[in-house]
């Protein structure tokens, strides 16, 4: 439990959220440790993605949003009005369930983040793009056609491209919302391997409804049910000795 006590990356305190007057998250209190993979599990529609999207304030794009409580990123409340959202989102990258390449070439997709955050130098851009594509194992596959439209890649490649794109701006955290659900098993496996390598340098929060995936990836597990945190803790004890009966039922497949 040590990494949780000292210096969590996200410290979420009594965070509630409603959209269009309906409450989606209720009094969420949880700590997300640095440089580990924290997996959020739970049945569909219970608020996992909403919680995830709150951590980089992509949730701001929703209708009629009301929040209370706070989400602290290394001590600073990300909902503070003085916060620069573009910088927050640079620090906290996000990967969606279905790959969303931008309407540009493979190279430009990865370079996009650099461009908007002010990096003009061509040499730096080139080397960053190459190293990020390498980190996701795409470089060898695409280096001969960096100009090709990103939409010509296979779905698995596109998703890895999205990860490379997120890495290019040197984030501190990566939020993954069911990032492998839309992929074939081989691509899914590739991405899981990459995440396991990346976790040493990035705080990764991964939402999934596949328990086996959670077991493969997690250092810490958070169980969200009906908008509330039911239980959270280190992965080994979580799966073997769940404390809450609901957790036990979910893990055993009784519901969800």
């Amino acid at each position: 439990m040590d990494p949780l006590k000292d210096d969590p990356y996200f410290d979420i305190r009594n965070f509630s959220l409603s959209i269009n007057k309906s409450k989606i998250l209720k009094n969420i209190t949880v700590k997300i440790p640095q440089n580990r993979i924290t997996v959020i599990i739970g049945p569909s529609g219970c608020g996992k993605s909403t919680l995830l999207n709150s951590m980089n304030r992509l949730i701001d794009l929703s209708e009629d949003l009301e929040t209370s409580g706070s989400i602290l990123l290394k001590g600073y409340d990300i909902f503070d009005p003085m916060v620069d959202i573009t910088e927050l989102r640079r620090k906290v990258g996000s990967i969606s369930q279905t790959p969303n390449p931008l309407p540009m070439s493979i190279f430009d997709n990865v370079a996009y983040g650099l461009k908007i955050h002010g990096i003009q130098d061509k040499a730096i851009t080139m080397s960053t793009v190459e190293s990020c594509l390498n980190k996701v194992g795409l470089w060898e596959e695409v280096k001969m056609r960096l100009d090709a439209p990103a939409s010509t890649l296979s779905i698995g490649q596109q998703q890895r491209l999205c990860i490379a794109r997120a890495l290019a701006v040197e984030p501190e955290a990566l939020l993954c919302d069911e990032a492998t659900s839309a992929l074939d098993p081989i691509s899914a496996h590739q991405i899981e391997s990459e995440l396991l390598l990346l976790k040493n340098n990035y705080t990764i929060v991964f939402v999934t409804h596949i328990l086996r995936q959670a077991k493969r990836l997690a250092d810490y597990v958070v169980f969200v049910y009906l908008g509330e945190i039911v239980e959270y803790g280190p992965a080994d004890t979580f799966f073997t000795e769940p404390k809450d009966p609901r957790t036990k039922a979910y893990i055993e497949g009784t519901f969800g």
Partner: peptide
């Protein structure tokens, strides 16, 4: 819509998202 979200997720401002 996912293209707009992708642009925002990378930290774009509204104007930058609009150029995408």
């Amino acid at each position: 819509k996912k293209i707009k979200i992708a642009a925002f997720a990378l930290g774009s401002t509204r104007t930058e998202m609009l150029s995408v």
